[in-house]
Simulated assay, not measured.
Amino acid sequence: MRIKFAPFIALTLYVLGSCQDEQEGYVVQRETIVESVYSSVVVEPDELYRVNALNSGYIDELLVEIGDSVHPNDVLFAVRDVQSSSTASNARLSLDIARSNYNGDVNLLNDLKIEINDALLKMRTDSLNHFKNKELHHKGLINDTEFAQSEVMYSSSKTRYSLLKNRLARTESDLRTALNQAENNYVSSLSRSNDALVRNRLSGVVYDLFKETGEFVSVQEPVMIVGSSERFVLKMKIDEVDITKVALGQEIIVSLEAYKNKVFKAIVSHISPKLDAQTQTFEVEGVFTEKPPKLFMGLSGEGNIVIDKRENVIVIPLAYLIANQYVLTENGRKRVKTGVRSLSHVEIVSGLKPGTKILKEE
């Protein structure tokens, strides 16, 4: 029995041994190779901003909904600011008082003018008495004491008249200044009240709402997001290792989840100069040169920024490259010089010819 089965066993071992000796091979040929930097992509409007209230208060009215088209200067919502309303009322009251003090029916200036007229009459009377007493004193009809008393009264009335005129000028200046300040404060309070109406600053669409009518909102809280509806950009996060390879104007090959089995083209339009410390990446933006029929905020996909493209060059799979500088041929190891690399292939600048069979090293 052993003699009959021995040839069969020997043949089986030979065949298995022969299969193990055969190595996977690749015939070198000329192809096109593209070196690229890969990143996930997100589609966003090229203009996008969060709309905040200009003052804290309660949302009196929301005039738009998600998806509404908006234009510059459209009113988006109104905020009822209780404090601003109170401030405006107080400013108006102060203005009325300032106007009344300056030119009302009963005002400080009129009172002073009455006092000045009285002082003027008294000064004239004292003047007449003084000069009359002067003649009498000269004739010896009154004594020195009586003459001195009339002189003092005249001097005193002149001083009072002069002081009242100066007081009128100062009071009029102070009241006018107070009136101007009250007018400015009132105008300023009205301006703050007008700030309650928040207006749009670009043509686009309302993409999101965070608040409802009646809710309180502070100046730090966004109420909605508004952005462009016609122009979109691609946002990419590029690793710091690859960012030095990226340049403005480079082509981006884009595939989107919303458009299966379709490829679109874009170019690099902006490179952020600052590293994001959290993600250790740089943000790169791209604009479509061949864009999909419809775009929406938040569409996601993949993008490859074309760093270099070589046509009709010798290319081999990376799996056949040994230690970055050798390949294995049927005649043994051979040193090669490499060029552009992709994720799966590498260009061979020198050391190999088309048609050469290379093997994978065990």
Rank of each mutant, 00 (worst) to 15 (best):
L248N: 04
G249H: 00
Q250E: 10
E251M: 01
I253W: 05
V254I: 03
E257I: 13
E257P: 00
E257D: 14
Y259T: 00
K260L: 12
N261H: 00
N261S: 02
N261Q: 06
N261G: 05
N261V: 07
V263K: 06
F264K: 01
F264H: 02
F264E: 00
F264L: 04
F264G: 01
I267Y: 12
H270M: 09
I271H: 06
S272C: 06
S272V: 06
K274V: 14
L275F: 11
D276T: 03
D276F: 01
A277S: 15
Q278H: 01
Q278I: 07
Q280Y: 03
F282R: 05
E283Y: 09
E283D: 12
E283M: 05
E285V: 14
F288S: 03
F288H: 04
F288I: 00
E290H: 01
P292H: 02
P292S: 00
P292F: 02
F296R: 15
F296M: 09
M297P: 11
M297I: 09
G298K: 03
L299S: 13
S300Y: 00
G301E: 00
E302S: 13
E302L: 08
G303V: 06
G303S: 10
G303C: 11
V306A: 03
I307V: 15
I307H: 08
D308R: 14
D308N: 15
D308M: 10
K309W: 00
R310S: 03
V313Q: 09
I314N: 10
V315P: 13
V315N: 15
I316D: 09
I316N: 06
I316M: 05
P317K: 02
L318N: 12
A319T: 15
Y320H: 10
I322W: 11
I322F: 09
A323Y: 09
A323P: 08
N324A: 10
N324Q: 07
N324P: 12
Q325V: 07
Y326C: 13
V327G: 09
L328Q: 04
L328D: 01
L328G: 10
E330M: 04
R333C: 03
R333L: 10
K334G: 04
K334D: 11
R335A: 05
V336H: 08
V336P: 12
V336S: 01
K337A: 05
T338M: 00
